[in-house]
């Protein structure tokens, strides 16, 4: 799985952004980081109605075993996919 991301090649914020956006339908991600510690702000319709745990799992699932290894740490902030409708 994810064999094209060799363990000896540093991850980049660009790579993480691309993988989150292609791995989660409709996701828009902003990723910052230094090659080991990353912070991702992610917005996606797929998060709607899910618990925080489930939302974060969707992002973690994009990276699988690389977390804690090639990607040493990944902080995640989930943003609402749309502004709450005014009533």
């Amino acid at each position: 799985m994810a064999s094209r991301y060799a363990s000896d090649v540093s991850a980049t914020p660009e790579e993480l952004k691309e993988r989150i956006e292609s791995g989660i339908p409709g996701a828009v991600a902003t990723v910052t980081g230094d090659g080991h510690h990353f912070n991702a702000v992610v917005r996606a319709p797929a998060f709607d109605g899910k618990t925080r745990i489930a939302q974060h799992r969707l992002v973690y699932d994009v990276f699988g075993d690389e977390l804690g290894d090639r990607i040493h740490a990944l902080s995640i902030q989930i943003q609402p996919s749309q502004v709450e409708e005014a009533r």
Binding site: R52, I53, H56, R57, Y60, L67, G68, A73, L74, S75, I76, Q77
Partner: peptide, 25 residues
């Protein structure tokens, strides 16, 4: 827990989350 990162906080047997979720909550 099906949760890849540390720390992990559990309350009443349920995973609440890691640092990000705990901070938000």
């Amino acid at each position: 827990s099906q949760w890849p990162t540390i720390p992990q906080l559990f309350v009443n047997g349920e995973l609440v989350g890691g640092c990000d979720i705990v901070s938000e909550m």
